[in-house]
Design a protein around this nucleic acid. Sequence first.
DNA 1: GTCTATAATTTGATAGAC
DNA 2: GTCTATCAAATTATAGAC
Lengths: 188, 188
Amino acid sequence: MTREAAETQVKILDLAESLIRKGGYNGFSFREIAAGVGVKSSSVHYYFPTKADLGAKVARRYTDRFMDALGEPQDASKIAMDVVSQMHGSFADALADDGQMCLCGVLAAESAGLPTEVAGEAKEFFNRTANWLNVSLQNSDWGKGRTSSEIEKQSLAVLAQLEGGLLIARVQQQPDLFDLLTPRLPMD
Amino acid sequence: MTREAAETQVKILDLAESLIRKGGYNGFSFREIAAGVGVKSSSVHYYFPTKADLGAKVARRYTDRFMDALGEPQDASKIAMDVVSQMHGSFADALADDGQMCLCGVLAAESAGLPTEVAGEAKEFFNRTANWLNVSLQNSDWGKGRTSSEIEKQSLAVLAQLEGGLLIARVQQQPDLFDLLTPRLPMD
DNA sequence: GTCTATAATTTGATAGAC
DNA sequence: GTCTATCAAATTATAGAC
C-alpha cells in the first residue's frame, strides 16, 4: 500500500467519523465523503466495499483509539474517583475538539435500525469500556469489599451518565454542561 | 375534520414515532410511513407538508404526552427518591412497550444533523423534563437547604443517567439493564 | 381526503478504461 | 488507485384528477 493510498483511506475514515458523529449513520453518503476527501465515490468503494463495512470500520477504529487512550487498568490499587475522572476525561476529549458526541453513543441511539456489523461494533464499545471500568473499580479503594454485581452495576451507571451527559450537552448546544456532570459512586 | 381523517393522521404520527425511535430521523421515509398506514405517500404530505414538519410534530406530541404522564410538580413536600423513581418509571414506560428508547434521546443524538425545527423540539423535551425535576426536587426533603445551582446540576445528572441507561439497554439488547440503573442523589 | 403520475435529486453500488 | 460512466432503486415533494 503506497503512502498516498494510506492517506486517502485515513482521510475517508476521519471524515466518515466526523459525519456520523454529526448526523448518524443514515445521515451521510458516499458522495459526501468523496467530495470532502477530493476523490470520486467509486474510490471510496475501492477501500470500503459497502457502507456497512465503512461504518463498522469507523466504529472499530474509534473504539480501539478510545481504549488505547485509557490504557490498561492498573493492577495496583487506585482511588476510585481518579478512575471515574479518567473516564470522564476521555469522553470530554471526544466532545472537546468539535462539540460532537461519542461516535458509538450516536450509533447506539439508532442501533435498532443499523446493519448488524455496525450495531455489533457499537455494542462492543460498551462492552470494552464497561469492562475497563469494572476491572479498574475492582482494584480501587471503593471496590474493596463490594460484590462484583454491585461493581458491575456502578460501572454501567457511570457509563450511562457520561453518555447521557454528552447527549444533553449536544442537544442543548452547551458543551460546558458536560463538565458539570462528573458521576459519583455511592458511599453507603 | 372527519373521523377517518383524524385516524389517518394519528396513525401516521404513531408509525413515524415508532420508526424514528427505531432508526432515527434519517432512517425512515414517507413511503415507508404510507405503506404501513395503508395510504399513498402523497396523502402523508397532505397532513404533513414536509418531513421536517412531521418530525417536529412527532417530537412535540411525544413531549406533551410525556409531561402529561408526569403531571404537575406538587407544591407539597415530597420524598426526593419518589421524584426520581417517578421519572425513572416514565422512561421505563417508553422502553417497556417495544424495547426502544426515548424518542427525543434518539433525536438528540443526531441533533447536529437535523432540520432546526426537529432539533428544537428535541431540545425542548430536555428543557421541560429538567424543569420538572428542578421544581420537584426543590420541593422535596432533599432539596431543602441546597442551592438552586446544586439542584439544577443534579436534575441534569438524573436526566443524563436515565437517557444514557436507555442507550445502553438498547444497544446491548437487554431492556432489563435499565431497571438496574436508578439514579441516586448525593447525600453529603 | 385520497389517488395517479411524475418531477428532480440522491443514494449505494458496479463495470471497465487508464 | 483513481477515474468516467452508468445503473437501479429510493428519496422528498408537487400537480391535478376524482
